[in-house]
Design a protein around this nucleic acid. Structure first.
Lengths: 351, 351
DNA sequence: CTGTTAGCGCATTCAC
DNA sequence: GTGAATGCGCTAACAG
C-alpha cells in the first residue's frame, strides 16, 4: 500500500507539507490564491490519496463506527444495519461490521476490536442475555465497554442497556417498548380469539424475548385470560420451526384452536413452516402473530399479524444518538424514542 | 480517544517500548522469561489497548477489508456479506461496509473511501452496468481501482469484471455462470411448459440481468421455442412488482398461461405479489421462476423454482481469493469456481 | 535477548 | 499567509 504522500505532493508543488495539508483539507486558514491551485494539481497528477489512517492518528478521530449484530443476514439486523449505514454516511463516517454468534463473549471480542481501532462510536444491536452461563462474559463486555467510554469512545445500544455497565459519559441507550407493545398485542388478540394462547419464545433469559413474553402475559391477564404456555427455542427462524414442530403434534391431538405468539417475525415464519409441513394451516388450525414487522413479511402468505417497529429508524437514531457531541442529551432532539404499532392481519383472523 | 500507550506500559514495566511491543504482539523473537510477565501485567493494570491505527501506519497493513454492496438489506447481498464476514474473521480482518445506490458513481465513492483507509482488500458485489449513462462513472471507477491495485491494494469482484479495468496485479474476479445456468433453466422449463415465456428482467444494460436473459433465450431457442418477450424494470423486489403489474393486466386478456422468468428471486417475489394482488395465482395462472435461491425462499408459498447459487460461498471465496498472497493463482486453490443448480419447484409445476 | 534510533503520513503548534 | 519543528502510537532496523 505505497501510495504517494503529502510530502511528495508538497515537494512537487514547491510548498511545505503544512501548506499542502492546509489546502487539501479545510484547515482554519484559507491558503494562498494560486498556491492552492498548484497544490491541487500536483495532488491530482500524483494520484494522491490522503491516508486516513495517518490522519486519524494525528488528530485522534478515526471516522469509524463499529456495528455489532448477531447475524447480518437476519432481516431484523440488516434493516437496522441499513439505518446505521445511512446515519453514518450522513455524518461522513464509515461503518465497521462485526457479527457475533449472539453471545456476550462474541460481543466482547468485537467491542475490543473496535476499541483497538479507535472507532469513534460503537453501536450494539441484538438482545442482552441474562442467562447464568453468560454472566461472566457480560462482566467482561461491560468492563471492555466501560473502558472504551472512559477513553472517550461513544456507545449506543438498541433496547436494553448493557448488563453491569453503569451510566457513564458517552453511553446511551435507545429504549424499545417491547413489553408495552406485546401487552397491546395480547389485548387486541384476546378480543378476537377465544381459544388458548401459546408463546413461542426465545431462550429463557434473553432480554428482548423475556420482555415480550412478560408484556404478552400481562395483556392476557388484563383481559381476564389464563396465562399462555411458553415454549422456548432459539430466537430465530429455526427456533420457530422447532417450537412449531412441537406444537404441531399437540395440535392434532387437542381440539382447541390456539393463538400462537412468536417472539419475533422470523420465529413466526418458522412456526408457520413447521405447521404447514404437518398439514396444518394458519389461520384455520391456529392463529399466529409475530413481532418486528420485518420488510418481507408483506410477501408471505398468510399475511402475518405483528407489531411494527421502525427498524431502519432505530438504526439511524441509535447511531445519531451515539454520535451526539459529548454534552448531555440536547433538549429533545426530535428523538422522542421509538414507538411501534400493533398490526393485525389475516394470520390472526377469526377462523 | 485517549487510552494508555505502549510507552506508558513500557515505562511502568521498566522496559523499552520495543520490548513491550515484542511481548504484546508476536514479534519474531520471544522476549525474556519474567520480563514478558511484567509487561503483560503492566498492560493489564493500565487497561492498555493497542492502537491498531498506529500499528497499521507503522507496518502498512490495516487488516481492513472493504465490502461494497447495493443494499445490505437485500437477502442476496446480506448472504454474500455473511460469507465475506466469515472469511474476514478467519483471516483476522475486519470488514468495512459501504452500500451504494447501485450506480458505478456510488461504487467509485466507496472505493475511494476504502483506498483512503488503505484497506488491504476491496470486495465488490453487485452487477456491473453497461448503460450509456454510466459510462463516465465506470471509467472513474476503473481508474480509482487501478490506482488502488497499483498501490498494492487487492481487489475481488463477484461476477463480471470491472468495465475498463485491465488485468492488473492484485485484481481477481470470481466468475458466476449466469448465462449457462439460465440456459439450463430454460431448457428444463421448456420441457414442461407449453405456453409462451416472458422475462421480467432488470434494466437493459445491467450485466447480471443481461447475462441471464441471454442464457434463457438461448435455452429457449435450443428447445425450438420462440424467444421470450422481455419486460424491463428495477432489479429488485419493487421492479418485479412493477413488471408483475404490467403482466397481470395482459394475463386476464389473453388466454395462454405463460411461464415467467424473473431475473432474480426478489424480482420473482415482486411478480408473485403483483399477480396475487390482481387475483391471479401461481402456478395456476402463470408459472414463475427466479434466480439465486435466496435463503428465505423456503418459507414462501408456492415454493419458487429457481437456480441455486452458493451465495455465502461466493462471498467467502471472493474474499479469500482477493487476500491471496500476491503471486499468481496458486495451483488449483480448491476454488474451481462457482457452480449453481437448477431447482424446479411448485411455482413451475404443470397447471 | 534488550535498548536506541528512525521513521510510517499527517496535523498542528509555533516562529517568520 | 507560509514554513519549520514536534508529536500521534507503534514497528523495525540497527546497535549493544
Amino acid at each position: 500500500m505505497a501510495a504517494s504522500t503529502l510530502a511528495e505532493v508538497a515537494k512537487l508543488a514547491g510548498v511545505s507539507p503544512a501548506t499542502a495539508s492546509r489546502v487539501l483539507n479545510g484547515s482554519a486558514r484559507t491558503p494562498g490564491a494560486g498556491i492552492a491551485e498548484r497544490v491541487r494539481k500536483a495532488a491530482e497528477s500524483l494520484g494522491y490519496v490522503p491516508n486516513l489512517q495517518a490522519q486519524a492518528l494525528a488528530k485522534s478521530s478515526t471516522g469509524l463506527i463499529g456495528l455489532i449484530v448477531h447475524d447480518i443476514a437476519d432481516p431484523y439486523f440488516s434493516a437496522i444495519a441499513r439505518g446505521v449505514q445511512e446515519a453514518a454516511h450522513q455524518k461522513r463516517r464509515m461503518v465497521l461490521l462485526a457479527t457475533t454468534d449472539g453471545t456476550p463473549a462474541g460481543e466482547k471480542e468485537a467491542a475490543a476490536a473496535f476499541a483497538a481501532r479507535r472507532a469513534d462510536a460503537i453501536v450494539i444491536a441484538g438482545s442482552r442475555s441474562h442467562r447464568a452461563e453468560d454472566a461472566a462474559a457480560n462482566q467482561d463486555l461491560a468492563a471492555e465497554l466501560e473502558r472504551y467510554c472512559r477513553n472517550g469512545g461513544r456507545l449506543g445500544v438498541v433496547g436494553q442497556g448493557i448488563i453491569g455497565l453503569p451510566e457513564i459519559d458517552g453511553y446511551s441507550t435507545l429504549p424499545v417498548p417491547n413489553e408495552e407493545l406485546a401487552r397491546q398485542l395480547a389485548t387486541e388478540l384476546a378480543a378476537g380469539h377465544d381459544g388458548p394462547f401459546v408463546i413461542a419464545a426465545g431462550p429463557d433469559g434473553l432480554a428482548t424475548s423475556d420482555e415480550r413474553v412478560r408484556g404478552f402475559q400481562r395483556g392476557l391477564a388484563d383481559a381476564g385470560r389464563p396465562a399462555a404456555e411458553v415454549l422456548h427455542a432459539a430466537f430465530n427462524r429455526d427456533g420457530g420451526f422447532d417450537a412449531g414442530s412441537r406444537l404441531a403434534a399437540r395440535l392434532r391431538a387437542e381440539s382447541a384452536r390456539p393463538c400462537i405468539f412468536a417472539g419475533n417475525d422470523v420465529m413466526a415464519i418458522g412456526v408457520a413452516a413447521a405447521l404447514r409441513g404437518d398439514g396444518l394451516s394458519v389461520p384455520e388450525d391456529a392463529a399466529l402473530a409475530g413481532f418486528d414487522d420485518i420488510e418481507w413479511l408483506r410477501d408471505l402468505q398468510p399475511e402475518l399479524s405483528t407489531v411494527g417497529l421502525p427498524l431502519e429508524d432505530i438504526g439511524r437514531q441509535v447511531t445519531l444518538g451515539a454520535l451526539l457531541d459529548s454534552g448531555a442529551d440536547p433538549d429533545g432532539a426530535a428523538s422522542a424514542g421509538i414507538s411501534g404499532t400493533v398490526r393485525l392481519r389475516r394470520s390472526t383472523a377469526r377462523a
